[in-house]
Structure formats: structure tokens, C-alpha cells
Simulated scan of single mutants.
Amino acid sequence: MLLENKLKYFEALLESAKKFKQQPREKTFFDTAIRNHYENPTTELLEFFLNPQESHELGDVFWKGFADVVQAELKQDTDVSMGQIERLERECVTHSGNRIDLMLETDSHLLLVEAKIYHHQNNPFDDYVKYAKTRTKGKEILGLILSISGKSEALNWYGISYQQLVNAVRPYLAEQMLSQPMNKWNLFAREFLLHLESYYKIQNLDMNRVQFIFDHYQEIQELQKLKTNTIKEVVEKISQQLNLMIDNYASFTKYESWGGIRFYNHAWGNLTNTTLHIREHKGETIFGVTTYILNLSEELQEEAFQILNCHEDSRLRNWKIEKYKGGAERWLCIYWDSPEPTFEAIEKLILEKARLLDQIEKTLR
């Protein structure tokens, strides 16, 4: 009775945890390329998109959004223009050898932009301004620190956030996409904005979710332990059934780091196996079984399919050939899905395919 009450409590705990389920962030192609080197590529892309004369054909879409953010930060009247861009320089070297991330010159301002992602704001800002004064031509100098927090730690430098920039540029980009829907750079610009937003995946910490974990930490640990022990018992039971149901079957198992659990047979003398794996797909838990056959000749492949009933069994998902060790290992991989998420259905699938696999090993080798 105590165990039954415990299970009911865990059911209620899991139900209450559903509201904290995190939705996966939409990935962009930038995630595949610049994740380990944030600031330089970000500055390069900003320079590219902020320049109305560049080949992106987006005109001043990014510049208008950027200028709106700066004017809002300066609390200037929206009628006061930041001017039109005349020149952009990245990695601008001062007389002292320091580098300004991005310098934008308009017909009225000289904007110094320092782009920060996760680094501290410990740059020689005074030297940046000193150098800018030699280039100003009487224009107003503005120092801007673009960062995740949007805060400036430098005297007389204004802080703006990537999220502010994204929010300001999006409406202009939306208009651009409607007027020129076939422009490929619309997609790249959208991806870049999504990439800038990805910097906030840790900043936007859901404190209710954190508190839920803290409040139920011990119970979650118990639930994890219950899961581990239960899966171990399931594996042991299936191993026992394999030994009982198949002649001369001597089962041994291996837990893979990616979550698969392999059932081998000592009697075969090779690594052919039946593997249980549990995965999530479109919000559902899928219990899958894979038949792995090592170095079976191609001539015998169709016979193996016939024995395993591949052509008739609706549980078959697909199959493929994988080669390792320079082709010395040729694996025939056949994937099955359990029709129901029950122990009986999973056990039946594993035992059935393992028995047929035993037939293959004893007759086709």
C-alpha cells in the first residue's frame, strides 16, 4: 500500500511538472558555425546588415531599427535624426593600437559600438573617444555598448541590448519581406535576429521552474532512482526470458551511453544483438527495438528479411546498412517500433525478433 501511494504521489508530481516543460528553441544556421566565437562574427554581420549599400538588398532596414534604439536610449525626440550612414569601419585601430569593434559615421554623428556577448566591459573606452575626436569632423560622438544586459559600465557610454535591436528591426524587416518576398537575404536577416535572441536562453530563467525543482529535489532524485532500478529489472526479466525461450541462449547486456540497451548471445560468438531504445518523438515516448546483424553477406540479406518477417510486420520502421572500421564491419540495421508503450508489447517484440535472429545466426552463417 505504501508503494502504491508513492507511485500516485509521483504521478501527481509529474503532472504538475508538465507546465514547466521547455519548448525547444528554433535553431538557426548560425548555430552550426559561430557558436564558439561569438563577438567577432556578430560584429561582422552587424557591419554587413547595417550598411545600406551592401549586397543584401535590404536597404536601411537594420540601420533604421538601430537608429530607433539609439534615439530611444538618448531620450531624444523621434524627429531628431541620427543621420544617414556614410561609412562603416570594423576593428578600427586607434593610435594606441586598441581596436574599436565598429565605428559608424553618419552625416551628423560618429557612433562607436562595442559588441559584448559574455565578456566583461573592461575596454579602454577613453582611448576610443580620444581617437574618435581626431576623426569627428565636428560631428557628435556617441559611445554605445551593445550587450545582452543592455547596460553600460563605462562613463558616458550608452547601453543597448540585442533584444532591443531585434525588436526594433523586426517591423522594418517584415515590411521588406512583404515588398520583396523573393529576396534571399530576408531569410538570412531573420536567422540573424533569431541568433541574437538565442543569447537570452540563459538570461530568461523561469524562476517558478527553478523553485519547483528546488522544492521537490529529493522526490525527483527518488523518481530518477525508481526509473533506473525499474529499467534494470525490466532488462533482467527480458534476459531471463531470452535464456528460457531460446535454446542455448546465454544472454548478456550492455548499457550504451546514448540510452540503448543491447541484448547479446554468448553462443553466437559475435556482436550481433537486439537493442532496446527509448526516445521522444513529437511529444510522445517511442519504445523501439533494433536488430543489428554483423557481417552478414549481401547475398543472404533477403533471406534474413524473410526470416524476420520484414515484408509483413507493420512494426517495421526502416532499415539501413552501416559500415565501420574501414568497411571491416558491415552492420545490417533493422528498426522496429512497439505498437504500444506497455511492457508486454515491448517484451513480445524483443523476444520475437531475438528468436528469429537466433535462427538467422544458426542457419545463414
Rank of each mutant, 00 (worst) to 15 (best):
L45H: 07
N273Y: 08
I145R: 03
Y162T: 06
I346M: 13
Y335D: 15
S81A: 10
H281E: 12
I220N: 10
V61F: 05
R209F: 13
G143R: 07
N270F: 06
L193W: 09
L349Y: 04
G65Y: 06
L294N: 02
D107E: 04
E340K: 05
A267W: 04
L244N: 15
F29R: 04
K254G: 06
L46P: 02
R90E: 05
D358I: 03
L173W: 08
E222Y: 01
L102R: 00
E26C: 10
T32K: 13
L296Q: 05
Q176N: 12
T285R: 01
Y199S: 04
I117T: 13
W319I: 03
L13E: 09
I148E: 08
R35T: 15
C92S: 09
P171T: 14
P41K: 10
G83P: 09
E15T: 06
W319R: 15
K8C: 05
M177K: 15
F212P: 09
C310G: 00
K116H: 04
D215M: 03
T291Q: 14
W185I: 00
L112S: 00
G83H: 07
H281L: 12
Q240P: 08
L194T: 10
P124W: 01
N167E: 14
Q224C: 09
C333Y: 07
L2H: 08
